[in-house]
Structure formats: structure tokens, C-alpha cells
Simulated scan of single mutants.
Amino acid sequence: MIMKIAVVAADGRVAKKVIAEALSRGHEVVAFGRHAENDTPAKEYIQKDLFDLTREDLAGFDAVVDAAGAWSPETFPIIPNAAKHLAGILAGTPVRLVVVGGAGSLFVNSEHTLTVAETPDFPDAFKGVAAAHQQALDFLRTAKDTQWTYINPAGDFQAEGERTGKYILAGEEFTLNSRNESIISYADYAIALVDEIEKGSHSQQRISVVRA
């Protein structure tokens, strides 16, 4: 079944992989980005800031991918604010919101009281972005009228990693593969994300993926 997918913050590297993967399966993709030029694989590109998007802009889509990212203290708030804005304008509609997450919020114990970002060895350099992703997830858990899914990548999220076509679908806990690795490429993450859009089996849930 051909689906209509909107990718928001489409100029980022994860977004471009998601667009390419969705297009390879024959889906209709509309990319929304801030740049004047379309440097995404999408044939249809709309220049519009994420925070200017309206309910009408996203009506008629089967799914909206929130690929908003930030890498500086000044921009970290973009991550939770993007989730809030998109969840708000999609509330009460059947349009699914699929959010690109970060590994720091995964739990490392069965009681779900300690996250990766809270462990002693978690690098200080990533604490800010991890906190921003945590805030986004915390908000989504309260968004009862939005059909959201939050997808955590593995700890080692590789922009240039190979597309193996294989991944392990996990849940709330930090998961290692059979080689004791927490790793996934952007390309394999995109496969998992588009699979989730097609299957729609984890509404209002957080899931995670790691290379098989």
C-alpha cells in the first residue's frame, strides 16, 4: 500500500536516509525544510520552518516524521519543542507522528529507574542533547490524543555506516546484539522507521533498534 509521508526538518542526514528509504518502496514523500534549495531525495519539497507548520499543512498524510536535531546548548530546545508543536497540531487526527530519538533515554535496568544518560560513564559532551531528547519523550508520553511512536537508535549511531538491511527491534531498554554491540547505521535506522510507518504496530510507544 502506497502511503503519504511528510518528513519534517528534511535537510538533516537522518531525514534524507528516511526519505530515500520511503521513496525506494514507492511511497509518496513530501519534504519540509528551512533551506531554499531542495537538497533532499524528495521530488516534492516545501520550504517552511517546522514551527510554522499548521494542522492544515499536515492533513491527509499517513505519517509525519519528526527528524528535528540540535547540537548546541542554544538550539537544544528545538528537539522537545518540535515534538510538542507537531504532537499538538496532529492531536485528534489519525496522522501518525514518528519521532527520531536519541539513545540516552533508554533504560539500563529492568525497573526502568536509570537511563543510559544517567550512568557514570555517559560523556558530558552528549548530556545536553540527551536531556533534550528525554524532554521530548517525556512530553509525548502525556500526548494521549496523538498517535506517536518514538524510535531510539543504538548508542553508536553511524551516519556513514553500511546498509545491512537487518536490525533488532527492541523496546524501552538498552539492548546489545549478539556481538555485544549497540550500533546502527542511519541507513538501517531508516529501514526500521519506514517499517514502523508501514506496520503501525507501536502507537503511543517508544521502541529502539540495533544492528542485528
Rank of each mutant, 00 (worst) to 15 (best):
V108P: 03
F157T: 04
G101N: 02
Q158E: 12
P123R: 11
L114M: 14
G171P: 01
V116D: 00
N109I: 03
A136N: 07
R141F: 07
Y150W: 12
V129P: 02
T75D: 10
N152Q: 14
A103N: 11
E172C: 09
E173S: 12
S182T: 10
S178T: 14
Y150N: 05
L137Y: 13
T164A: 09
I183M: 11
W148S: 00
H133K: 15
E111N: 11
Q147P: 01
D121F: 10
D121K: 15
N81E: 15
V99S: 06
I89D: 02
G88Y: 05
F174E: 00
Q147R: 13
E162F: 06
E74L: 15
A103Q: 05
L90F: 02
L169P: 00
A83M: 03
V116G: 01
G102C: 10
G128M: 06
L169C: 04
A159R: 15
R141M: 10
E181S: 04
N109R: 07
T115D: 06
A159G: 11
N81K: 15
A63D: 01
A68V: 10
F122G: 09
F126S: 10
I79V: 15
N152H: 15
A132W: 03
K127T: 13
A91I: 01
Q147M: 09
T146S: 05
N177L: 05
A143R: 01
E181M: 11
L137W: 14
H85I: 12
H112F: 07
F126C: 03
A103T: 11
F122K: 07
E162C: 03
G60C: 07
A132L: 09
V129K: 05
L97P: 02
K84F: 02
F107P: 02
P123E: 06
S105D: 12
T149G: 06
G155N: 08
A143F: 02
D66M: 11
F139R: 01
T115W: 02
G92K: 12
V108K: 12
L140P: 00
E118H: 09
Q134E: 13
V64L: 10
